Computed example of a mutant assay.
Amino acid sequence: MKHARGHILVALTFLGAAGIGGTLVAMRAVDAPSPILVTDDEAKLVIAAASIEPDSLAVCGVSSAQAAAVASAALEHVQTSDSTLPAAYNALVSLRGQVSQAERAVRSGSGSADDLTQLQTQLAAQEASVGTRLQQLRDAAFAGLSSDQKTRLNALRLSSPLGLGYPYRVMDSTESDKVTLRGALANVRTCDYAGTSPDGACQSTIASADARADVSLADAGLQNIGAIRTAFASGMTD
């Protein structure tokens, strides 16, 4: 666990014999208030909530050394720069549950619409606040990455997987293209299981996806996924 401890030098004043204020030459160090201590598990929870995890780093071309630095910077940020973020995130999760419960109560006729509206307003404010702080966490964690790596990570976080796993999930393409690819992959899996030949058009769709630069980069990263996961875990314990 990382935490900072500061000191403040305090000058002690006194009244001299003639009643004139003076300052003692000797200075004493006083501990400054320490940040709220954050456990590793609490830090890991919000780091994951910020979509900072080794697999996405791998498919976006991040090296093992960079992955370790990302994890270390993320942990440092949560435990020193924004140590109240875990509590804020937990409050957000709690509010989401309260809103869901209130919605069910209103639908059943046992709840108050005004109470629901109030909770929804609180939730929206908390979502915005925590969202901003999670972005600050990502900014701190990804500070050492290249612009291209940051762009790919952001696009991956905002994209809908549409049932696609890696490496195809990183594709910067239309939803229609992703749905077509998902169907083609399903056709090949089904045919492999049945021992039959897959549809030619499906094979062509998959081959075109495999030839994409973003998919090729992601596939190369997956070849090093074990080392990147190990490096990330190491960075989280520094």
Rank of each mutant, 00 (worst) to 15 (best):
I8C: 10
L9P: 00
L12E: 15
L15Q: 08
T23H: 10
V25E: 12
D31W: 05
D31K: 13
P33D: 06
D41I: 01
L45S: 08
V46G: 04
I52W: 03
E53G: 05
G61P: 01
V62Q: 02
V62M: 04
S64G: 12
A67R: 00
A71G: 00
H77W: 05
V78Q: 02
V78D: 03
Q79T: 11
D82G: 03
S83Q: 08
T84K: 11
A87R: 08
Y89V: 08
Y89T: 09
Y89N: 10
Y89I: 05
V93S: 10
R96P: 00
R104Q: 13
S112N: 04
S112E: 03
A113T: 08
Q118K: 10
Q120D: 11
Q126T: 13
A128G: 04
V130E: 06
L134I: 02
A141D: 01
D148M: 03
D148T: 07
Q149K: 01
T151A: 14
P167W: 02
D172P: 05
E175R: 11
S176V: 11
T190N: 08
P198R: 04
G200Y: 07
A201C: 00
Q203V: 00
Q203S: 07
A209S: 01
D210C: 08
L217Q: 09
G221N: 05
I225K: 01
I228Q: 00
A231T: 08
F232K: 02
